[in-house]
Computed example of a mutant assay.
Amino acid sequence: MTQACDMKRKIQGHPCFGGNHHKNGRMHLAVAPGCNIKCGYCTRRHDCANESRPGVTSRLLTPSEALVKVREVMASPVVGPIIKVIGIAGPGDPLANEETFETFELVKREFPHLMLCMSTNGLLLPESIDRLHELGLHSLTVTINAIDAGVGAWIYRHVIYHGRSYSGVEGAAILIANQFEGLKRAARLGMTIKVNTVLIPGINEDQIPLIAARVKELGAFVMNIMPLIPQADLAHIQRPSEEHLAQVRKANEGIIGQFSHCKQCRADAIGLIGSDMTIGQPACMAPPA
């Protein structure tokens, strides 16, 4: 089997990695509230039903509650048959929360046919990758926004690593080094890897082809360039237009394959991309700092 055929087989059914997103769906479990970095474009909210973006969820779930939710969804004659992937993507960073590992273990035990997927900032990836491999993680998404720590310092307010807080270039350098090291180890273990990069006009545009080349070299399968959602520290920067986004994707597709169907999903998304079911409350509440 050729490498291309093998990869096509591995992503079959995964809507966020190039599988048929009109037919196959995913279910995100919001079991990871804590985060270990502060991105300038991120505002996490719990108990939130009226926003559609990463970092928000209608409610946080415990691992046991998440398993009950998976059972409910899989038992639905309408939604159950389309769910192929169980993912954990927040609302914080999955690797900063022990609940992530417990949830994957519970889901794997009861629904072994479902693919397990996770999205992370990558800070704790090198030290967590073997454990994720043992749990049977199929797909991994790492958000990488810079290859130069000087640029990263404009994007990340701080990084909390092994109990210490680092800011500026120092913090960004730790994060970036761990992202690439973790990605490399994940590829060696045979995981299917997507890299998310937030396009931040005026800050990291020149970094994107450098990121694309580096992650391709290390074993990433596809890249997902996403538009900035202006908020938090970067609320003053204008969101890139669809035309601008398309130009950047086209400029990098010769380096690594580009994923263009991303809808920047919530941490509790269920169903087909762009047609999600959410159950929540009308208020939006910021989590404790």
Rank of each mutant, 00 (worst) to 15 (best):
C48K: 09
A49T: 03
A49R: 02
A49G: 15
E51T: 14
S52E: 13
P54S: 12
G55S: 01
S58F: 04
L60R: 06
A66M: 05
L67Q: 10
K69G: 01
K69M: 09
V70Y: 07
A75M: 01
S76P: 01
S76V: 02
P77S: 13
V78P: 01
V78C: 03
V79G: 01
I82Y: 00
I82R: 00
I83E: 04
I86A: 15
G87N: 10
P94D: 11
N97Y: 07
E98T: 14
T100K: 00
T103P: 00
T103W: 08
V107L: 08
V107D: 04
V107T: 08
K108L: 09
K108H: 14
R109F: 12
P112E: 15
M115E: 08
T120K: 12
N121E: 05
N121A: 03
L124A: 08
E127G: 03
E127L: 02
I129E: 04
D130W: 11
D130N: 14
R131C: 11
S139G: 11
L140V: 07
T141A: 06
T143A: 12
N145S: 06
A153G: 11
W154D: 09
I160R: 13
R164Q: 11
R164N: 09
R164K: 14
R164E: 12
Y166W: 12
G168A: 12
V169I: 15
G171S: 10
I174L: 08
